[in-house]
């Protein structure tokens, strides 16, 4: 099981994401944004949180066009798994791998706190380690997490059971309380909260560990 974690200038959760993958049993390969290919045999690509390219133009917009971006798109087109967290989620929407966009928080403030998430579907490798409807505690740390999509897209996400997580108490104005969405093939997940920050009880919680354990476990069986 190989996981690639991409680092852009301004990424700051890349190490945490690598540790979360490692603890779940994956071999982690670190990849630089200027690389044009992913290492051979990568099963899952992690796009970390942070402020890639200083959030210039729009959050994630420049990173989405970086050399490694094309390789991530090819990986996804092959049916590979991609997990984007926080800025990684913004990058995935800018790449067009996930629908919708992340706008400025409705309250305009940067929000940094632990929130409750409801597991909205267990029908994907990322959430198979949770019980349906389970409420988990995961931190958010973002200024632009206000998930926005047109009515048609929202209806489609709902109809196809592609909302992975919903906020119990919506912190940022996200439509439909959406905290994380899946691609049509259920292998690309983008989410604003940070499960990689809660994989060890010693650092504030372990509710995120099941996401990585479930993912790596599911892929090891595949």
């Amino acid at each position: 099981m190989k996981a690639a974690v991409i680092t852009f200038p301004g990424s700051n959760c890349d190490r945490d994401l690598a540790v979360a993958f490692e603890r779940a049993g994956a071999q982690v390969l670190r990849v630089w944004h200027k690389d044009t290919e992913l290492p051979a045999g990568v099963d899952v690509v992690g796009i970390p949180g942070g402020f890639s390219f200083g959030d210039y133009l729009r959050c994630g917009a420049i990173a989405a066009q970086s050399p490694i971006g094309a390789a991530v798109k090819r990986h996804a087109a092959r049916g590979g798994h991609v997990l984007g967290i926080c800025n990684g989620f913004q990058v995935l929407t800018e790449m067009g791998l996930l629908p919708g966009a992340l706008m400025r928080n409705a309250g305009l403030k940067f929000i940094c706190k632990t929130v409750e998430l409801q597991v909205a579907t267990t029908d994907c490798a990322y959430t198979c380690g949770y019980a349906a409807g389970q409420v988990i505690k995961v931190p958010v740390a973002h200024h632009d997490g206000n998930y926005t999509a047109d009515a048609e897209t929202l209806a489609q996400l709902q109809a196809e059971d592609r909302v992975a997580f919903r906020y119990v108490a919506n912190p940022n104005g996200a439509m439909g309380d959406i905290a994380g969405v899946l691609s049509a093939n259920r292998r690309v997940l983008g989410m604003m909260p940070h499960p990689e920050r809660v994989v060890d009880a010693a650092t504030g919680g372990a509710d995120g560990a099941a996401l990585f354990a479930g993912l790596i476990g599911k892929m090891a069986l595949a």
Binding site: L57, R58, A61, T93, G100, A101, T148
Partner: peptide, 9 residues
């Protein structure tokens, strides 16, 4: 279309 605007929003 490619970069300057996000035509979703």
């Amino acid at each position: 279309e490619k970069l300057l605007a996000n035509t979703v929003i």
